[in-house]
Amino acid sequence: MNKELLKINDLKVSFFTPAGEVKAVNGISYSLEPGKVLGIVGESGSGKSVSSYSIMGLIDKPGKIVGGSIVFDGKDVSTMTKAERLNFAGNEVAMIFQDPMTCLNPVFTIGNQIAESLIHKYGKISKEELKKRSIELLTLVGINEPEKRLAQYPHEFSGGMRQRVMIAMALAGSPKLLIADEPTTALDVTIQAQILELLKDIQKKTGMAIILITHDLGIVADMADDIIVMYGGKIVEQGSVYSIFNSPRHPYTKGLLRSLPDLNKKGEKLIPIQGNPIDLLNLPKGCSFAPRCGNCMKVCINHMPEEYSTEDGHRVSCWLYDSRANNNAEVKNNG
């Protein structure tokens, strides 16, 4: 039996740039069950996109997977042949991006591009069948007058409509997993609401799993079953959506939630996270959050924290949760 759809173990991805090795993903492990929605949050540059591109095999030079394994539906992605991988990306896993134009070709009609995705999945199919399926897909993603729309070019579509087209193309291969990288960040809130509602609806209909990457905690609260919080190329905390929001453990997760504006505390000052985002070229020796952490102890500066499990199923990488720790440990920054 195969309960896990995706299992990532100690994945490491680096970019070898003139300025040095950028450890974009620095040893992450997680697994995802079929039909679940996993939200990945974290600040810009924390490795959310790179870790997900790795699943699709989309890491190009100067980037390289330098360690760990990715197993999808029982198959090790890194040992796939070229042909296997071609079939895998698109048909087993599909991806949508923040900017749909990165995937849409401006010189081909929408119909052409959807047809291409369908052919990728089904091989040779008749013209009538192609048209019928394309119209079904556009209807499924809520595009009116689909027949007319098939003959149009991407520039004739608004941002929200392009995102719908991209979702249609992703769905063409009936993937088991959809990776959505900031799918609504470039859209207005009313359009964002439309797209998120669409994703929920499709998820219900098809039962596919979704990895939803976003920096918006509101979006994961609404959509996700489980949440991963990334910081500096590592997973600092993971757990179910309810327990992450109700009892966050890692100081970074706590800080993020505390810094959100809240109507009930109007007139009170916001409580920000101190300091500046991390520089991956100059990673601290110990915990990467240490320079900004209000709970930082001596051990944190020089030693990477281990991962601890809590009774409610969180996994958290922070020295505070070491049962051997004594409470008199020296606090460096004031919190």
Partner: peptide
């Protein structure tokens, strides 16, 4: 409509 479109960072409310 605009107000209900805001993502609510609280899973109990949002869902």
């Amino acid at each position: 409509a605009l107000l209900t479109a805001i993502p609510e960072p609280d899973p109990e409310v949002a869902k």
